[in-house]
Design a protein around this nucleic acid. Structure first.
Lengths: 111, 111
DNA sequence: TCGTCACTTGCACACATCTTCAAGTGCAGT
DNA sequence: ACTGCACTTGAAGATGTGTGCAAGTGACGA
């Protein structure tokens, strides 16, 4: 066990820390997608998408398979969907708190 | 809403993508800790810890409060604990798969 | 076999993050 | 007021990531 668990965890979260990679995981957790489909949905250069897919592959989160002329990706760990849901919940909570705080400061409240 | 949700999500995950920050959140999700307590548990320079705490604060995940001579931190979003649990589950799954794959390749299996 | 589509890889530059040092703030005791 | 502890901040150098271009691979149809 060369890497302690908390370091593996950090690495794992870093893997998720990129907009394109998040989008890909969101799309793949709905259904499998060929690269050109992802490409149509995400608005990023092919080479860039490919790089991000490689990152996800290395992390073991997605799986690649050739089907005729195209390459199809699928999530290899179904719980990812759950993680994204929890993350959204937290995020919404945090953003709410922040905007509430902002409202507390912004208006000309002298009371 | 200048930032689309998937970008905010990516940012959020990047915030978690550091060993020290993960450790801090793990410790704080058990109970509140003063900085010197974290310092005793984590093995990192004070200034470095402070930097990482600042990152967590900016992200709205932890809260700071002065108590006498010391500064106490607490998680401001309880769901973080849940997120860490799900993350561990995924991580263990992925690592299992990877080591299984390794065993499939490593031994002198000619069959 | 040739061209084309679907992807991937290597590389180089720009940009962000991490780490540490040095200096600064705030509180408590003397 | 002064000293010391607890912590934070700023800044700089090293390191890591992201991006786009150019080139490469593989499958398919003409």
């Amino acid at each position: 066990m060369a890497t302690p668990l908390y370091q593996a965890k950090a690495e794992f979260f870093r893997t998720l820390g990129h907009p394109v990679r998040i989008r890909v995981l969101e799309l793949l957790s709905e259904r499998d997608h060929a690269v050109h489909e992802l490409l149509a949905a995400i608005a990023v250069e092919p080479s860039n998408l490919s790089q991000q897919l490689a990152v996800l592959r290395r992390a073991g989160l997605v799986r690649q398979s050739r089907e005729g002329g195209q390459v199809v990706y699928s999530v290899s760990v179904p719980e990812v969907r759950e993680l994204l849901v929890v993350a959204r919940r937290i995020l919404v909570g945090v953003l709410d708190e922040q905007s509430a705080l902002k409202q507390e400061l912004t208006p000309g409240s002298a009371a």
